[in-house]
Design a binder for these strands. Sequence first.
RNA 1: CGCGGGGUAGAGCAGUCUGGUAGCUCGUCGGGCUCAUAACCCGGAGGUCAUGGGUUCAAAUCCCUUCCCCGCAA
Length: 310
Amino acid sequence: MKVVFLGTPDFAIPSLDALLQANFDVVAVITQPDKPRGRGHKMTPCAVKKFAMDKGLDVHSFTRIRRKEGVEFLKSIDFDVMVTAAFGQILTQEILDIPKYGCINVHASLLPKYRGPAPIQWAIIKGETETGITTMKTERGVDTGDILMQEVTPIYPDETAGELFDRLAGMGGDVLIKTLQGLEDASITPVAQDHDKATHFPMFAKEDGKIDFNKTAAEVHNLVRGVNPWPGAYVTLGSEILKVWKTEIIREKATRRPGTMVCCDSKNGVIVNTSDYQIALREIQFAGKRRMEAAAAMCGRELNTSEAFE
RNA sequence: CGCGGGGUAGAGCAGUCUGGUAGCUCGUCGGGCUCAUAACCCGGAGGUCAUGGGUUCAAAUCCCUUCCCCGCAA
């Protein structure tokens, strides 16, 4: 089958790679255009573009694929199926009607739950114990199309979004291939989603990484996992921002009001009260410094336990 | 040229402004105390102060080069 692949970030790479490994004919790869990224704001291509160019594929970028230029490009090439994976642009019906086998989307949740652009992170933040990959027919709505295949995987208690992201990205490639093969031999029947059970979560705002110690220790722990590595959890102490990369719930009841420190020294690290239990900040990072064990950080810096995190 | 912080012992930091003996906390090693210890006491080892050049009687410190790490912002 001749495939046109639309994807942008890291998550999409294993899917594209799986297509190549399975000898699908990837006739074109479409990504978001280069943007100024990183320190220095240098123009940088997205992950999929870099990968695809390394593989010698035909790569195109459109600010809006739905505009005339993009539509005309798609109509000008010969292909059978379109695959989207974290592409980041909404397609029009006109575009969806172009390929004979339609358009397939790879989504990193068990739809209809966790629709939207950040399903992996939100599943962790909400304390889910399992998630998965869903392939579906792409519709004009966001993640609303009929389900083709679904595979489940557990979310481990201390797993971070980054770790889960890597696993799901890999699974996404596998499920995508099975889905395409199923479509070819007509062994898959699309099933409509139960829209009443749908949940939708937005893209993260920078503030979403801020820890609220008025929540429970479990909720704090899930937030820290869910926003690691991006955008990263943080607390403020006075005017200073402290990023928190790893936490551990301590099975001791909180001793004082949420946000206050139980202790902070080079033996025990930093332990903070939440609304129920205590939580240890295991791996932290001060501005300008690299991330480090909390106990190590306390060797060269003293915090005052009378201060509280906000 | 988006803004900014940093590189000093195994770890985390101070010292740099104002040039003049390499410091602190932790770890580590040895000894002591103790029924015992992750606790306490005593002692030791461990540094080419990122890199290259310059100024100087003298540079971690002042000037310039290069490399690397990181926060914000995107």
